[in-house]
């Protein structure tokens, strides 16, 4: 496994990110509220949380599909929050790529696989001759475990796992520094999920790209991530290395989330009772919390009294 140099400058720094959606004059959805995290080159950062916790919104704000309400996003030394200059935006669009959840919905059904994968090359004019373009597409297809003949086929001719490989190939062809994988395996069959995860790991070892891995399946997140952030209701409650989060969860929500994962071990599982957690009755107010250091890189968002009680 590759080593990550945590003393180097982080690839992505997100500070105090807020993403609000105004529904009406009196009602605003605070999808993401004051979230900060960092991703280092070659690292995989897992974002977990239930639906509606804002994990996908963070991914979309970071890649600037949304305009963040407040906060600072620095990527590869460029400030990409607020209005971007033409060259900054060009850089961002090349160096940060995204893999979506549903591979069928995210591939244009009327384009061949070759054209879908090559679209980035076409837009950014990164080839001189036609042959060079075909060569790049061929190489990337081989890298993701498809064959070059597939370039002339259409998305409907592929299985779900193969389509997701196309999605990965499309992201990879620009040689990005960061790939945002938004629930990229949850639409796939169990046996195919493992194939795609292995492929993503291999690619990371080879190219050193970083992943922002967004998912709700904690066992897969644990497997692929170096560090993890736990989101609930738009707040980043706890973050740390995978080891820190899984062996010493501090926040009650993290604990309930971990205890809710069913284990494939019938005798143990039948006896186990999941911890329940209800925000309304827990007496915890996320807005009042501030970031507290537990140890190492393990932070938890809470008030001083809560911190004393939990740790």
């Amino acid at each position: 496994m590759h080593k990550i140099d945590y003393s180097s400058a982080p690839l992505l720094t997100v500070e105090g990110l807020k993403q609000y959606f105004r529904i009406s004059r009196t009602f605003t959805v605070k999808a993401v509220d004051d979230v900060s995290f960092k991703i280092w080159p070659g690292e995989t950062y897992g974002l977990v949380g239930e639906s509606g916790s804002g994990k996908s919104t963070i991914g979309r704000s970071v890649i600037r599909l949304y305009d963040p309400t407040a906060g600072k996003i620095v990527f590869n030394g460029m400030d990409i929050s607020g209005k971007m200059s033409h060259s900054t935006e060009g850089n961002l669009r090349v160096q940060m790529q995204m893999i979506f959840q549903d591979p069928m919905a995210s591939l244009n059904p009327r384009k061949t696989i070759g054209d879908i994968i090559g679209e980035g090359l076409d837009i950014h004019h990164t080839y001189k001759t036609r042959a060079e373009r075909e060569e790049a597409i061929k190489n990337i297809l081989l890298k993701v475990g498809l064959s070059p003949e597939h370039a002339t086929r259409y998305p409907h001719q592929f299985s779900g796992g193969q389509r997701q490989r196309v999605g990965i190939a499309r992201a990879l062809i620009m040689n990005p520094k960061l790939i945002i994988a938004d629930e990229c395996i949850s639409a796939l069959d169990v046996s195919i999920q493992a194939q795609v995860i292995n492929l993503m790991k291999d690619i990371q070892d080879e190219t050193g790209t970083a992943y922002l891995f967004i998912a709700h399946d904690l066992s897969m997140v644990k497997y692929i991530s170096d560090r993890i952030g736990v989101l609930h209701l738009g707040h980043l409650l706890e973050t740390g290395t995978t080891e820190e989060i899984f062996s010493h969860p501090v926040h009650p929500y993290t604990k309930s989330l971990l205890s809710a994962i069913p284990e494939p071990n019938p005798i143990v599982e039948k006896k186990r009772v999941a911890e329940s957690y209800d925000y309304k009755t827990s007496g915890i107010h996320y807005e009042d919390g501030t970031s507290h250091l537990v140890e190492g890189t393990h932070y938890v968002k809470c008030t001083d009294e809560e911190f004393k009680k939990w740790v």
Binding site: I192, A194, N198, Y223, F246, I261, E263, P264, N265
Partner: peptide, 24 residues
């Protein structure tokens, strides 16, 4: 065997996940 192996339990530390090759 494949199904049980492919599912990472929380103790999995192996470098690679076991996969069932091919597709259904």
């Amino acid at each position: 065997w494949g199904l049980l192996s492919a599912m990472p339990d929380l103790d999995t530390n192996d470098e690679r996940l076991y996969t069932i090759p091919g597709s259904p």
